[in-house]
Computed example of a mutant assay.
Amino acid sequence: MIHFLVGLPTWMLIRTFGILSYLTLFLGMSLGIIYSFPQIKGHKKGQVLRWHTYANVTGTCFALLHTVLLIIDTFMPFDWAELVIPFTAKHNPILNGIGTLAMYGILLVLFTTDIRNKLKRKIWLAFHLLSYPIFALSLLHGTLIGTDSKQGWAILMYFGTAAILVSLTVLRFQFSARKRQLKVRSSNL
């Protein structure tokens, strides 16, 4: 079994799982924002929520695989302490620590979502809004330490995903502002 694990193309798998994690978490976050749009109703709203959840769980699994494979990588192996304790890695401790913090953040958001019915809405929402800084940490980790981050496709991917999330967030705030204005108008009548 050890020979099989050591014989795996770990560096390629680590990179692939890292990118897949980033993209599926981006998709999950985008769907979470879209879920709040007033145009999404009924059956569509349920579908968006299911895909949001599926993408986030899948992205977390990819992130865990990305992390665990670093243990058996023969080119640049990490020990468990370097992966579990932020900013202790021998190689790029700050950037790897950012990745570790992002992983903990993802797990925290998923856990608090699982116990959502036991939390007050404001508390759950505060944890859920951590998705934004977690995404920023993931973006920093990928762009600054990713071995492919200087490639044109990777630059386009990182820039494009960030631009889409910013745009969706702006739209979300615009819809919220309109909703508040309508409530104020209707209460004044």
Rank of each mutant, 00 (worst) to 15 (best):
M1Y: 11
I2C: 00
H3V: 05
V6F: 13
W11S: 10
M12T: 15
R15S: 06
F17P: 00
G18N: 03
L20W: 12
L20V: 06
L20N: 02
S21Q: 05
S21H: 09
S21D: 03
Y22Q: 09
L25K: 06
F26G: 02
L27Y: 05
M29S: 09
G32D: 07
G32C: 05
G32F: 03
I34N: 01
S36R: 15
F37T: 07
I40W: 09
H43T: 11
H43V: 11
K44F: 11
K44A: 13
K45E: 06
K45F: 10
G46F: 04
G46Q: 12
L49D: 14
L49R: 10
R50P: 02
H52S: 04
Y54N: 07
T58L: 15
T60R: 09
F62V: 01
A63Q: 02
L65E: 02
L65T: 04
L65Y: 07
L65A: 15
L69A: 08
D73K: 04
T74D: 10
T74R: 14
F75Q: 13
M76K: 15
P77L: 00
P77I: 03
P77T: 04
A81Y: 11
A81V: 13
E82H: 06
P86M: 07
F87T: 01
T88C: 03
N92P: 00
P93T: 02
N96F: 10
N96D: 01
G97T: 07
I98R: 00
I98T: 05
I98W: 01
G99E: 01
L101T: 02
L101Q: 00
L101F: 14
A102K: 09
Y104I: 05
G105C: 06
I106G: 01
L107I: 09
L110I: 13
F111Y: 12
T112P: 01
D114Y: 13
I115T: 00
R116A: 07
K118R: 11
R121L: 14
I123W: 13
W124V: 05
W124D: 02
L125W: 04
A126Y: 10
A126Q: 10
A126F: 09
A126T: 11
F127Y: 09
F127W: 13
H128C: 04
L129N: 02
L129C: 03
S131L: 08
S131E: 05
Y132G: 03
I134Q: 08
L137D: 06
L139M: 14
L140E: 06
G142E: 01
I145T: 14
I145H: 14
G146I: 11
S149H: 11
W153I: 10
A154D: 12
I155P: 03
I155Q: 07
L156M: 10
M157L: 15
M157N: 05
M157C: 08
G160S: 08
T161I: 05
T161F: 03
A162R: 08
A162S: 15
A163S: 14
I164H: 07
V166H: 10
V166P: 07
V166F: 14
T169S: 14
V170R: 08
Q174D: 11
Q174N: 09
R178E: 15
R180M: 11
L182N: 15
L182I: 05
R185Y: 07
